[in-house]
């Protein structure tokens, strides 16, 4: 069992509030937010930090009124694995499908791994929103 530091959820001094979590802390943190009925999951953003940094940052954006909370998770780019939020928040499924196909992040226990946006014949090892993917004709 992982013990979490108390999150100052009532503070609006810093908006959005950025909280860095590890892949292990992610589910307990989201569970706690969910149990306290604090806000809702607005979106999941993936950011490729590039091959040199070998990192992918994933932001889980929660909103409660005007207060925003970003759970920040950094994972290795060459082995990107995160757990699925769907057991707690079923609505995360679409966001996870998008994250999976655009960044090549493996999401464990996510209920649906079909492509949501990409065509079915899209190559399985090409992830369009990674920085090293350059579509033809861009910048011409």
């Amino acid at each position: 069992m992982i013990t979490l530091p108390p999150i100052p959820l009532t503070s609006t001094e810093e908006n959005p509030l950025n909280v860095t979590v590890s892949a292990l802390e992610l589910l307990p943190t989201v569970t706690r937010l969910h149990e306290q009925r604090w806000g809702y999951l607005v979106a999941i953003t993936g950011i490729d930090e590039g091959a040199a940094a070998n990192q992918i940052t994933i932001l889980y954006h929660f909103a409660h009124g005007a207060t925003l909370l970003n759970l920040r998770l950094t994972i290795p780019r060459d082995n990107p694995i995160v757990p699925s939020l769907c057991s707690i928040i079923p609505a995360a499924s679409f966001y996870e499908r998008e994250l999976r196909e655009m960044f090549g992040v493996t999401i464990t226990n996510t209920p649906n791994t079909d492509y949501l946006f990409l065509p079915d014949n899209w190559p399985t090892d090409i992830y369009p929103l990674r920085k090293d993917f350059q579509p033809e004709g861009v910048g011409a």
């Binding site: 655009m102 649906n112 079909d114 492509y115 949501l116 946006f117 990409l118 065509p119 369009p128 929103l129 993917f133 579509p135 861009v138 910048g139």
Partner: peptide, 18 residues
């Protein structure tokens, strides 16, 4: 029921980066 989107996907999030 299941859904498949993306038929109007134009890669705009990628496009903004250049």
């Amino acid at each position: 029921a299941s859904v498949r989107l993306g038929y109007a996907h134009r890669g705009i999030e990628k496009g903004v980066e250049s």
